[in-house]
Amino acid sequence: MNVLDLFIEYKHYYIIGIKITILLSFLSLIAGVILGTILCLLKMSKYKLLSILSTVYIEIVRGTPMMVQIAIVYFGSYVMMGVNVDGFIAALIAVSLNSAAYVAEIIRSGIQSIDKGQWEASRSLGLSNKQTMRHIILPQAIKNILPALGNEFVTLIKETAVASTIGVADLMYASKIVQSSSYQPFNPLVIVAVIYFLLTFTLSQLIGIFERRLSHSD
């Protein structure tokens, strides 16, 4: 069976896989943005302890493989708390916690990329720290942050492939099923690679268009 026939024959597996992969990545991104914003606020806090805690969290998450993190959440929830967490939920939790660390850094660098002169001008007019953040800094920082969040989405689509290791029926998992039911070790991999590529490439192009539109309004 050639690659195309193989894809048509097993396409419902792939379609489910695509849905699960996108759903997992997207929900994780949303949760990551919420948690990441909080982490970023903690990291930039004037209270040293909060800032250190946030930094430690971010460094640990960024310094360990997502595969390990997913396994820790999935098996750890049983070993430590005796709960049997559904694979998808475990993956969602782990990927969200992982993404939060990256998103926190994205937001922080977006904010810090704004020229110090903007703070000074605003504060010298008598606006408070909060007013400056809300009316001057964030509206400008968001232009750097949004495209970077789009790229984080692209990264998540690829990285969530490791969720298949705990049995989440994502795109990678679909590929494994097709491998074993068709007795073809190689062609399903080609198919899944092409699908991943099409997903991420399309998304990157959309981000590019969006980014150009943002910079237009400068």
Partner: peptide, 19 residues
């Protein structure tokens, strides 16, 4: 903040709000 409201500052690099 209140004191700064009574002091205007003009910077070398203008620091207008670009947005």
């Amino acid at each position: 903040d209140r004191i700064r409201q009574s002091i205007g500052m003009v910077f070398q690099h203008f620091n207008l709000f670009p947005h």
